[in-house]
Amino acid sequence: MTSLPTQPTAKKLGLVIDLDVCVGCHACVVNCKEWNTGGYGSALSDQDPYGADVSGAWLNRVHTFEVMPQGGEIVGEAGEARIVHFPKSCLHCEDAPCVTVCPTGASYKRAEDGIVLVDEDKCIGCGLCAWACPYGAREMDLAAGVMKKCTLCIDRIYNETMEEVDRQPACVRTCPANARHFGDFSDPQSAVSIMVMERGGMDLMPEQGTRPVNKYLPPRPRKSLAASAAASPLAEDTEGAKGFFAWLDGVLDRI
């Protein structure tokens, strides 16, 4: 059924992505492809994989944006523009437009945990769900002719043959900077819910009315360029020295 669950789902499983922490290493991208090309559904094919015009289906991609504050200036490499690495995968929306447009019932949202999945045996590869998604979370696998998307690593998170620490999406497990977190958003006491509350977690494109489950934590505020320039270099300031170092500081001053 491609009608969305009528009741709020029992769990709302999803990701928190911390834009303050992501270093843009693409490890989550690679591990996502690695896990999912051998897991749920058909393999994630690449076209012309060793050629000049390589492309393929990926469920997670890292974009990089430059953000220029109002009135900010660019001064060589120390300008006020910020670089923000931006990992993007399916947001498992509560009002997922990709689900309702599906003509075959292949695309569905699970009532028990809110995960949006594609039943590849029913998918005809019409591509309409990819058109309906404003986030670009769905990509057609050109070899298999079916739509691929993030499964939230459904074959890991419930997998009791794995050690508990590994029962997380591949992207979360592999992130060396701890920028990705997995949890249940319907539980206000869960780590992800608390993180979202404390850091002002936000929705992407709220105006599209999709009510995404995944939340993004905004980068923390940064000191302005002028403020950074005014501060005296740390190494020249001995103000807070105590004990032996205060004595040494005094002696060296007198010499």
């Binding site: 834009l19 974009h63 430059e66 931006f86 990819a130 986030y135 670009g136 050109l142 494109m205 905004p218």
Partner: peptide, 28 residues
């Protein structure tokens, strides 16, 4: 609005996720 970074300032794409085209850029 797509990145949620509008509160900080003007957003501009710095780097695409991949150097080559993909299904999304060809289709949309």
């Amino acid at each position: 609005s797509a990145t949620g970074l509008g509160d900080i300032g003007k957003v501009r794409l710095f780097e695409r996720p991949h150097m080559t085209e993909n299904y999304l850029t060809r289709e949309m």
